[in-house]
Every structure is written in C-alpha cells, then in structure tokens.
Design a protein around this nucleic acid. Sequence first.
DNA 1: CTGAAAGCGCTAACAT
DNA 2: ATGTTAGCGCTTTCAG
Lengths: 338, 338
Amino acid sequence: MVTLKDLAEQLNVSISTVSKALHNSEEISPETIARVKALAEHLNYKPNKVAISLKNNTTNTIGVIIPNILNHFFAKALYAIEEEASSHGYNIITCLSDEKKSKEMNSLQLLSDGSVDGFIMSIAEESQIDNDTEHIKAILNQNIPIVLFDRVSDDIICDKVIIDDFGAAFEATKHLLSEGRKHIVLISDIDNLSVGKLRTNGYVQALTENEDYKETPIVVTISKNEVADQKINVLFKEYPLIDGIIAIDNTSGVIALQKAFKLNYNVPEDLSIIGFSDDNVLQFTDPKLSTVSQHTIDIGKASVNLFIDRLNNKAQNSTKTKIIKTKLILRDTTKPVF
Amino acid sequence: MVTLKDLAEQLNVSISTVSKALHNSEEISPETIARVKALAEHLNYKPNKVAISLKNNTTNTIGVIIPNILNHFFAKALYAIEEEASSHGYNIITCLSDEKKSKEMNSLQLLSDGSVDGFIMSIAEESQIDNDTEHIKAILNQNIPIVLFDRVSDDIICDKVIIDDFGAAFEATKHLLSEGRKHIVLISDIDNLSVGKLRTNGYVQALTENEDYKETPIVVTISKNEVADQKINVLFKEYPLIDGIIAIDNTSGVIALQKAFKLNYNVPEDLSIIGFSDDNVLQFTDPKLSTVSQHTIDIGKASVNLFIDRLNNKAQNSTKTKIIKTKLILRDTTKPVF
DNA sequence: CTGAAAGCGCTAACAT
DNA sequence: ATGTTAGCGCTTTCAG
C-alpha cells in the first residue's frame, strides 16, 4: 500500500504537509494541495484503516454474532444489518455461534481485543437453555456496547430489539378463534427459546380467556433430534379433530400444510394454519401460507441504529428496548375475512 | 482496554520488559515473568489487535463478498467459510453485493485499505452479465489475494474453487436418459451465470450425444421479474409429454415437483425430477427430491484453505483451481436403480 | 536481566 | 505555509 511517507518523499515535503493537504487544511497552499492530491490520486493512495483505528481507538466495525445462518430469519436479519451498517460506514465481522455457548463466548472474547466497537447479537440456544449469560455481561462490564435482537434475556441490561412475541401469537390465535375453530394446536421447534416461550404463552392466554373454547391448549414440541415430518404426522393421527394450527417457528407451518394436504384435509375449510415463516417459503406452498410477518428487515436496521446511537452516547446509562410491530398476513390457509 | 503501559506502570518496570515477559522471553527473570503474568491475568489484559495488525501489516481477517445471503447455497458457503476461517484464527468481514456490480466494487475498494488480508468471493450476477471484472482484477494487481468460488471468470487469473458444473448436469441428464425418458426439459433461473451456462451445456451435450433421443433440448429460463410458479405451470401446459426435468438452480426443482403433484403427474412413474437444491428443501418435499449435491461445505472450506495457502506463499505466481466433486443423490423423484 | 528507542501509518498540537 | 514532534499499542533491536 502507498503511505503518506511515500507521497512525502516523492514530493519532497513532510509527512504532515501531505496529511494536511489531503484534508484540505487552510494551512497549506492551494498549489501544494493540488500537487499532493494529484500524486495521491495517481498512486491510488488510501489512508491505512488500521493506522486510523489505532489512532482513534475506534474501528467502525461491528461484531455480529448469529446463532444459525441457515435459519432464514437470521440470514435475513444479517442481510439487513449488513445493509444498514454499510450505509453508515460500518463494516461487520460475522461470527456464527452455531447455537453453542462455547462458540458464542469465544467470539465475544476474541473480538473484544479492539477488533470491533461492539456487538449486535442474538443469544445462542445453549446459552438460553442453561440461562447462562455471564459471558455476555462480562463484555458489557468492560463498557463494550451490545445490542441484543430477537432472543434476549431479562438478566442482561443493554439495548434490545424484539418483536411482541406474546402479542403476535395471541393475535394469531384470536384470529383462529374468530373463525370458530374449536381444536387449535400449537407447534414449536423452539420451545427452548425466550421467543418460543412467549409465543406459547400468547397462544395459551388467547385460548383460556375465551369462554366458548373448551379444549385445553395443546402444545406439540419438536426437539432437535426429532424429524418434524414424523412428529406432525403423529399429531394428525392423535388429534384428528384438529381444525387450527399455530406454528411458531420458521418451518413447521409449511410442513404441517404439506402433511394436511396429503391427509386430504381441506385447507382452509376444515383446517386453518398460521405460521411464523418468512415469505421465502411461500414459493413452496400452495395454497399460500398465512403468516405472522416479523419484519425482519426492520429488526436488523433497528439493531444497527440502536448500536450507533449507543456509540455516540456511550455514557448514557438508560437502555432502550425497541419493539418491532408484527403483522398477521392472512393468505390462503385461513378463512377469508368479510 | 488494559495496555502494556498500564501493566508496566503498576509493576514499575518498562513496557518492553512486560512485553517480553508475556512472551516468555529468556531475557526476563522467572520471577518477573510470574509477576507480570499474574497482573495481566488479574486485569484481563489482551494484546490490542489493531496495534498488532499495524505492526505486522497483516490483519488475520478475510473479506468475504457474497452475492445473496438469502440464497441457501451462499448461506451454507458462508457458514463453512466462517467455520474454517475461525478454526485457523481468521475473522471474516462479510459484505453482501446483492448481485450488484456497484456494491461489489465498493466493498472491494473499501476493504482494500488494509482492513483485510484478501478476499474470498463469488461474482455478482451483474458483473457476470456485463462480463465486467476490471474492479476485481484491479485488486489482484495490488497484490491482494482473492479466491473466487462457484461463480468465476476465465478472465480473472487467481485461485478458484468450483464444481464440475458441466459434468454434474451431464451426469444427471444421462441418468434420466437411462430411465428411458424421452422428453427432458431443463429449468433454470440462473442462465445469466457462468455456472448456469455450463450446466445447460452439460444437459445439451448429454442429449445430443445420445442417438436414441430425438427431441431437441428444451431450456426454460426464469428471469428475475418472472414468477417461477407461473412459468412452470405454463411449461407443463406447453409440453404435456414432459417426462423428465433437470432443475439447475436452488428452488425450481421443488416448485416443479409441487406443480407436477397438483397436475396429477405420477412422480417418478411418469415424470422424474432432479434438482440442484441443497438438502434444506427436502423437508418441504414429499416425495423427497432427487438432487445433485454440490458439497457446499467442502466448497467453503477449500476456499479458505486455498486462501491461507496463498497468504503463506504470496509470491508464487501459479494459481490453483480446485474442483469439488458433486454427487447425484437419487431419492424419490427418480426411478429406483437396480 | 532490564530499559531505551525506533518504527508500523496516521493525526494534531506545537514550532518555525 | 511548512516542518517537527509526540503518541495511539505493540514488538524488537540495541544498549546498558
């Protein structure tokens, strides 16, 4: 790389003159500025980022820790974070925790060596199950900012971006009730997670506060080592009267729809299904799945903006929690509303 | 952050003594080493990464430029790259080109300010369509290493990781011929891309060199602003005799299967389908789609390893192209082989 | 065995 | 208008 020193030597001026010239300092004569800039342009000079980071003690880089990039929700969140960050002049260093506490901890520790100005992250499943977030608090204690999104913890005091998980599931369930459904089942492969628990509570609440609904809530959980396919097949066998499904994760709704179709349920006449999927799965469903849209792009953007606000005002000790609105999008797997 | 200076002051020794002690230098007395290490441990000292980067003129960071993170192939490639890189002590800075030449160029230029030691990337669609890769060559000319994966260009001389696209499609097509299929159609939403063209050529070649096959090859391309759903529906209308489909992109095979099912084709009795999808889509298909597996994890890992080899031997001017083997995985949308 | 000094590339206060 | 110097945090050569 070309350095200020190189330019200075070739022009027979001092390094600081070159530096000032490139910054259009008033102190430098217009002719010198022109000469310097011409040569800089010609040699494709770029200020060395590392040197500037060292000088300023700031990197303009955000560490982003994602539990699972193969989950479309997180891929889309990453997309939004990258876009918003780069539009503000920030780079992102991406780490994947693979849902493991050890990898999450490792990434936090490694990058808190001055590599990044702070973190945007969603908590790994393992950390949530163990409810062990000491490694995250340790970073905050070093005064390194963190924004948590989606999967958060009440134990951690920092800026957060979430959706109203409880309300979203509550509303979706209410909708099925308004259709007159009497046997509504919830399917989840994320019952370990904060968001999963909240959504389940929303579902249960909607059912129990409805006086006409007699059934007890039924929650079908699919664990890591189970095959969703089979579990959902069993579900249909066990509850043949099922007439409503709330699927609170990314994929179960689609799978349930496929199975229902195979089993000759009429959707949405006999059975309504609402998923929490992103719209990428719609290409694979016919009829089109009704979903709770999580506005993932907004979640990503809001995270970056909270992060930048925090950097600009590190001292401020009140934290913000931004709640992104969800939207129930009724497509073809719920009855049309009149 | 705690610095060497902080440690030195507290211990009443010089900075260089502290530095040497932490590196177990022979020059330093065991007692001093112990004292220094104890305090370093106690204060959670970490060498400042930025300072080390400046000193060594190397960042241990790879710039990764991905055309579209919402495409599962690239998400998986990124997953593998991150894993392999971090296991070798490298961080990755992720940029998303969004298939745009401008964003690709921007990322390359911004990060070639010393932020990264080089790049691993797949070329944006727009750059491939325009066949404009000057911005990539410009980086190579600055002696910054680049490894291209999947979407490559013969014009660019650098290390590459690809699959045998021609051969993979050739083999898949041959398989359908061996089933006795007489009306085999190729579906593609990537006919703009190097890989799309090669796969199409493989399909055409397999058909034309088969003497018993009478039909002319039929290539159905789906462009960005078309809806795959509809285009594939039209396809079935136009070619009712269709008995074989090769879908060379990530999603078309799944969609074709759904449509065939709706139209009451018997798969695989009347119609065989082979996709290039990753196995994440299998949960959405029943019968399970037969696919060409691209071994995406291997592609990512190989890219990182080629990159690190290059860094260790920057001078070497012969470039390597690594071809990752594909595998035709016959599931339920092709006839069983005996 | 320990310390001083230079240098990585840059900026900025302080001379001249 | 231009140059000198110090310093960001670290390593390393050279002196003591």
